[in-house]
Design a protein around this nucleic acid. Structure first.
Length: 805
RNA sequence: GCGGAUGUGGUGAAAUGGCAGACACGUAAGUUUCAGACGCUUAUACUGUAAAAGGUGUGCAGGUUCAAGUCCUGUCGUCCGCACCA
């Protein structure tokens, strides 16, 4: 068979004769299979795309064979930084390059022969989509879930531009090498923290990989503790957050984050210079660097003192960069006796270390960071830490000096981007009315914009865009010049797909309540914390506004692994280790390529690229073709259903049950292995002098159906070669017959003291006593036992018997 | 650093606590062929042996168990994420 020539033929025929399409009138059997949509970054599909999309399509096809009405949409996450950077470099407009890339990718995805529902295609950069992204912003704003506050950005003074984290290399601008600084801008946030508790609790409902659930749990980072108020000599107060209020009597100093607004105010004249210098330095390092426990804990004294509310003690106020302004209150109480970092810091700067918790095991060593019994803590002496951490805060509560508080590591979602290629934020600033939501959607992104960086958001310089009228009073007003994070676009696209052509609303509530949640979501593990959390947040927020009536968007989640370069590194142009799928596809065809991807890697792990097995798969498909054709060829027949037939059938049903499970769990490599075994069994049966045509052809036919999800064009051609009616994809997944697996005899392993000694044939279904008798009659077994008394016998049915002597 | 994974032949990899290496690639020998390609057969963890028998083997060190790649403790290496890449 010319595997390449037949591909176009079947793609064409499938399309013309509607071999498969989602049936909108049969929602009860719907199966929403969704792959994370792709960013149209390069001109062509790379190996990663193939790995993700062709094999999820195999899963989708498997579900179709299992009788499901599969809905598998496809689209493009088309806004984003790379297109804009490319534009700055080459002058090619992001819209032009993006739409061109999309056109090429669409063609390639269609050639893949996947069951995508192209009627519901989405491109997030088109006004008919981002209109509704802006609508989402409006709803969040109206429900108090969008707000503005100041937040720092990475700023390169030389390029006069905001930089993404990935554009900052070792604290320097990737373009010019100039030092990057933090700069405060007023920016838009979504209040995802309002849903922190529900986002955490509902993780239990999800059929997600455990590690992803663990990562989200950690990302949300719930910690239960208390806020405690310290008063400055000036009378001003600030709060610290702690989970260890039981150690409050051991607090010997407090530390403020360098960004804390009080720092400048309280620093005494003689410390001003030193503190200013320290602040400047710490603002240059990233949070990861600052939190690293390997890094030396640094800090400087402000000269100010604060009062510990629980005992009135005067403690020094320091500035230290291991305290983050973005977490808790941006200030911590330091208890060197009972905290590792504080201990190191105190030793270095000669600060007092005061023990207030005893180790129940009498260990005198410091720091002691576990729970214990309180000492030197006035009326709390003798209390255990667990009780005291609540009781001490409760006491302060009566004096309005503290309160119990649950903190989350999760921060509100910063959605402002000072960039061109994104969805404009639908906000207008009116001199009279102030900040006004603009619901005259879409707020269109203008084409003619100068996006060369010069310190301003590109849209700010576009007169036709920035100047508008106030939606409230109609007077001249200015638009918000920032655009939205592209994660906003991808936080609701799965809701748009089923109703992609709706121009009245983002989606019909009634319809998506039927179509969602997504039954199987497939995508990279790198999205564990951000995209997957944002999409869950959107779903819950829209539910609370009444636009939909389910709690979670993705019931079941699978991560595909990453195909790395042959050198084991991530494929990247700069490393020069990229591998193009094109040469394999033009040489062997897409079916061979995707079957190889299925067989050569563990789907959820991926691994370094190697094409060692591609020829092997090509050979195997040829072998399948040969074996199947032989089954439908001429040969002497028999009506007998003897051992050879039973053996062949046993392999068939063993294959059916395993391939079924393997497809369901994305274990494509073992599915292929099982089908190879079936091919081997067919070859073996072919050697029989006379063959039972019914059994033989049935096995061959079932093999073609089993293989259809991985090699759709190939199996379709073969199906017709052997004279079958209809399309393979319209057949039923082979039915498993447990009886076919039954055998009369098994080989049993006999162990003595857990050492293998003999293998003997025994009948199945014997009782343990009968089995023992049979086994003990065997010569080799007797020899191994050598007459020693048997202390214990362990039987694993049909597998082994172990005599302990 | 924190969080999450992961470690098995020459290679990709299999193994509900029950014969480690299924299924392939590669390699070697044989067979078919005028020849090559294709196909077919056999072997292929290490060590040992004439051949067997035996011994050793799942990063490393311990532990639990009749039995450990699998469970537990510790340790080392590698990979991924860390909030403006998507």
């Amino acid at each position: 068979m010319d595997k390449i020539a037949i591909e176009q033929k079947w793609n064409q025929l499938w399309k013309e004769q509607k071999a498969y399409s989602f049936d909108r009138n049969n929602v009860k059997d719907k199966d929403y299979v969704l792959e994370m949509f792709s960013y149209p970054s390069g001109a062509k599909l790379h190996i990663g795309h193939w790995y993700n999309y062709s094999l999820s399509d195999s899963y989708a096809r498997y579900r179709v064979l299992k009788g499901k009405n599969v809905y598998q949409p496809m689209g493009f996450d088309a806004f984003g930084l790379p297109a804009e950077n490319y534009a700055i470099k080459t002058g090619i407009h992001p819209q032009d390059s993006t739409l061109k890339n999309i056109a090429v990718m669409e063609k390639q995805l269609q050639d893949m022969g996947a069951l995508f529902d192209w009627d519901s295609e989405i491109k997030t950069c088109m006004p008919d989509y981002y209109k509704w992204t802006q609508w989402m912003f409006c709803q969040l704003y109206k429900n108090g879930l969008a707000y503005r506050k100041k937040a720092p950005v990475n700023w390169c003074d030389s390029c006069q531009t905001v930089l993404a984290n990935e554009q900052v290399i070792d604290g320097k601008c990737e373009r010019c090498g100039h030092e990057v600084v933090k700069k405060d801008l007023t920016q838009w946030f979504f209040k995802i923290t309002q849903y922190a508790e529900e986002l955490l609790n509902d993780l239990d409902k999800l059929d997600w990989p455990e590690k992803t659930v663990a990562m989200q749990r950690n990302w949300i980072g719930k910690s239960v503790g208390g806020e405690i108020e310290f008063t400055l000599e000036s009378g001003k107060a600030f709060r610290v957050f702690t989970t260890r209020a039981d150690t409050l009597y051991g607090c010997t100093y407090v530390i403020l984050a360098p960004e804390h607004p009080l720092v400048d105010e309280i620093t005494t004249a003689e410390n001003k210079e030193k503190v200013a210098l320290y602040k400047e330095q710490s603002l240059k390092s990233s949070e990861i660097e600052r939190l690293s426990t390997a890094k030396e804990k640094t800090g400087v004294f402000t000269g100010a003192y604060a009062i510990n509310p629980v005992n009135g003690e005067k403690v020094q106020v320091w500035v230290g960069d291991y305290v983050l302004y973005s977490y808790g209150t941006g200030a911590v109480m330091a208890v060197p006796a009972h905290d590792e970092r504080d201990f190191i810091f105190a030793q270095k700067h000669g600060l007092e270390i005061k023990r207030v918790v005893c180790d129940p095991n009498g260990n005198e060593e410091l720091p002691f960071c576990q729970y214990g019994t309180l000492i030197n803590s006035q009326e709390f002496d003798g209390m255990d830490s667990a009780t005291a951490r609540v009781e001490i805060v409760k006491k302060l509560e009566t004096q309005q000096k503290g309160e119990l508080k649950t903190n989350y590591r999760l921060r509100d979602w910063l959605v402002s981007r000072q960039r061109y290629w994104g969805a404009p934020i639908p906000i207008v600033y009116c001199p009279d009315c102030g900040t006004v939501l603009d619901e005259r959607l879409p707020v269109e992104l203008p084409y003619n914009v100068n996006f060369t960086p010069d310190g301003e958001s590109p849209l700010k310089k576009c007169e036709e865009f920035i100047n508008t009228t106030c939606p409230k009073c109609g007077k001249p007003a200015k638009r918000e010049a920032d655009t939205m994070d592209t994660f906003v676009c991808s936080s609701w696209y799965f809701l748009r797909y089923p109703d992609a052509n709706n121009d009245k609303e983002p989606f019909s509530t009634e319809w998506i309540d039927k179509m969602l949640p997504v039954d199987k979501y497939i995508g990279g593990a790198e999205h564990a914390c951000m995209h997957l959390l944002y999409a869950r947040f959107f779903t819950k927020a829209l539910r609370d506004m009444g636009y939909l009536h389910f709690d979670e968007p993705f019931l079941s989640l699978v991560h595909q692994g990453t195909i790395l370069g042959p050198d084991g590194n991530k494929m990247s142009k700069s490393l020069g280790n990229t591998v193009s799928p094109d040469e394999y596809i033009s040489k062997y065809g897409s079916d061979v390529f995707r079957t190889y991807l299925a067989f050569g890697f563990k789907y959820i792990e991926g691994g370094p690229w190697s094409d060692d097995g591609v020829v092997g798969i090509n050979k195997w498909l040829d072998r399948v073709e040969r074996q199947v054709q032989l089954a439908f060829g001429d040969y002497p027949t028999t009506q007998e259903n003897g051992k050879a037939e039973q053996d062949l059938n046993r392999v068939l049903h063993n294959t059916i049950t395993h391939v079924d499970e393997d497809y369901a769990s994305f274990s494509f490599n073992t599915a292929v292995a099982r089908m190879m075994e079936l091919t081997n069994a067919l070859a073996k049966y072919e050697g029989q002098a006379t063959k039972n045509r019914e059994v033989y052809t049935n096995v061959a036919k079932q093999l073609v159906i089993l293989l259809c999800p991985l090699a759709p064009h190939f199996t379709e051609e073969l199906w017709h070669q052997i004279g079958q009616e209809g399309f393979v994809i319209r057949q039923k997944f082979p039915k498993f017959d447990e009886n076919a697996l039954k055998v009369q005899q098994v080989e049993l392993l006999v162990q003595v003291n857990s050492r293998p000694k003999a293998r003997i044939q025994v009948a199945t279904g014997l009782s343990n006593e009968d089995l023992q008798k049979t086994v003990l009659c065997d010569e080799k077994v007797q020899e191994a036992l050598n007459g020693a008394p048997i202390k214990k016998v362990i039987v694993v049915p049909n597998k082994l018997i172990n005599f302990i002597i």
